[in-house]
C-alpha cells in the first residue's frame, strides 16, 4: 500500500472502520508522520463529538456496579516505552536456519484477509487485553509471507510487549488427521508455538512470549501435534 493510499485511510481509522491489520499498518504510518498524527487527532476529536448525539440515560445499576468494581481494580502506571533492542540474526547453518533467514528477506506489510481478521477479532474478545495491546502498539511490526502450497502466514509482533500474533489464511486444508503447527525458531532449537485445528487451512495463534525466538515457522503435523517438527517448514516469518 502506498503512502498516498494509507493516508486516505485517516477518516476510516478515526471511525474505527478499518480491519485489524489495516489499523496496525495505519498506526505504524502515523507513528512516522507528524502531519498525519495531527490530522488523526483532530478527526478523533470530531468522531468523539458524534457520541454527543447518542446521549442516553444509562440503567441506574450501572454506576453502582462500576463504582463497586473500581474499588477492587488496581490501576496501571503511566506508559513507559522501553528502548528497542536491535539484533542481527545469525547466519543460516542448516535448512531450518535458512528458512529463518529467507523469512527475514521476505519482507513486510500486510493487509488482512477478511477471514484472518475476524479470527483476530473473535480471539480478541476472549483474550482481549493482551491481543489489543499488540494490535494497538504503534511499534508493532507486521510481516506476511506466502506459504508453500498456497495461502499466507502473517505475524504482528510488539517488541515492547514481547508478544505477537500469528495468522494463517488460505492454506491447503489438510485431512482431519493432520493439523498445522507453529514453531518458535531460536538458533537450532525448535519449540512448539501452537497447534491449529485439525483439518483447517486457517487459524490464529497468540504468542504470549516471543522471548529470544528469531522466527516462527509452520509445518504440517499429525492432528495431535508433535514434540518436534516431523516435516519441512512451509513458511517462516521473523519475529524480531
Amino acid at each position: 500500500m502506498t503512502q498516498v493510499d494509507i493516508h486516505a485511510l485517516a477518516g476510516a481509522y478515526a471511525l474505527d472502520a478499518l480491519d485489524d491489520l489495516e489499523r496496525v499498518s495505519f498506526q505504524r504510518h502515523v507513528a512516522l508522520c507528524d502531519a498525519c498524527a495531527q490530522e488523526v487527532a483532530e478527526l478523533r476529536e470530531t468522531t468523539a463529538r458524534l457520541a454527543d448525539a447518542s446521549w442516553e440515560a444509562p440503567p441506574s445499576t450501572l454506576k453502582r456496579d462500576v463504582m463497586a468494581e473500581i474499588g477492587r481494580t488496581r490501576q496501571v502506571g503511566p506508559a513507559v516505552r522501553p528502548a528497542r533492542a536491535e539484533r542481527e540474526g545469525p547466519a543460516a547453518r542448516n535448512r531450518w536456519r535458512r528458512w529463518t533467514a529467507g523469512a527475514v528477506a521476505a519482507g513486510i506489510l500486510a493487509i488482512g484477509a477478511a477471514t484472518a481478521t475476524y479470527a483476530v477479532q473473535e480471539q480478541r474478545v476472549r483474550q482481549s487485553e493482551q491481543v489489543a495491546a499488540v494490535l494497538d502498539d504503534p511499534d508493532a511490526v507486521i510481516r506476511r509471507v506466502p506459504v508453500r502450497g498456497g495461502g499466507e502466514m502473517s505475524t504482528i509482533v510488539s517488541p515492547s510487549k514481547d508478544a505477537g500474533i500469528v495468522l494463517l489464511s488460505g492454506l491447503t486444508n489438510p485431512d482431519a488427521s493432520h493439523a498445522y503447527q507453529l514453531w518458535y525458531l531460536e538458533g537450532d532449537e525448535k519449540t512448539s508455538a501452537g497447534l491449529m485445528a485439525a483439518g483447517s487451512g486457517g487459524g490464529f495463534q497468540f504468542l504470549e512470549r516471543v522471548g529470544n525466538a528469531e522466527a516462527v515457522a509452520v509445518t504440517l503435523e499429525p492432528a495431535a501435534g508433535s514434540e518436534q517438527p516431523t516435516t519441512d517448514p512451509l513458511a517462516a516469518v521473523p519475529v524480531r
Binding site: A14, E42, L43, T47
Partner: peptide, 12 residues
C-alpha cells in the same frame, strides 16, 4: 475512504 475523510474534515 475519501468521503469518510473529507466528511469528517467538514464536520470538524
Amino acid at each position: 475512504k475519501t468521503r469518510m475523510r473529507d466528511g469528517l474534515i467538514r464536520l470538524r
